[in-house]
């Protein structure tokens, strides 16, 4: 069955607006009648990704494909890339600045949370080029 596709541009200039795309996606999934657990997992995973893109990559884009049995979230940016993915996946590891910590993020839980709440998390990244995350949440 063909997917329903939603595209979101994520503004990297303004931290205070970070998360707006995730809120929009959450509303759409609710309108489509998905179970609350599925909506919660998609929302948290995308929100963490959105925050990461604003903190580290000056924004990017999110594409959400909705199928009856799964939701695929693709986050893509043209930021600095992740030099060591294994390290970045460790809970507590973060390269975020003091300023980001003061905003309540940068605890090193972003990627681990995305993994925790999704069935699969695929990371394609190249230093100096950007990062593409593909997450799948089963319904």
């Amino acid at each position: 069955m063909a997917a329903l596709n939603f595209h979101f541009d994520i503004d990297g200039e303004d931290f205070s607006s970070a998360g707006e795309a995730s809120v929009e996606m959450k509303k759409k999934l609710r309108q489509l009648g998905f179970p609350s657990d599925v909506i919660r997992r998609c929302s948290i995973a995308m929100y963490e990704g959105e925050i990461n893109m604003v903190i580290h990559a000056n924004g990017g884009s999110a594409d959400v494909a909705v199928y009856p049995d799964k939701i695929v979230i693709v986050l893509e940016d043209h930021g600095p890339g992740i030099p060591n993915v294994e390290l970045a996946m460790q809970e507590g590891y973060s390269t975020a600045t003091e300023q980001i910590h003061n905003m309540g993020f940068g605890a090193g839980m972003g990627l681990p949370n995305m993994k925790r709440y999704t069935e699969s998390l695929e990371i394609e990244t190249q230093v100096g080029v950007g990062t593409k995350l593909t997450m799948v949440v089963a319904v």
Binding site: S16, R40, I51, M103
Partner: peptide, 21 residues
Amino acid sequence: NQSVLITGLLNPQVVRTAMML
């Protein structure tokens, strides 16, 4: 889900985080 969030952090992300949960 659906808990009360007690925090000393003041920015819009607090509300968005609450919304996600």
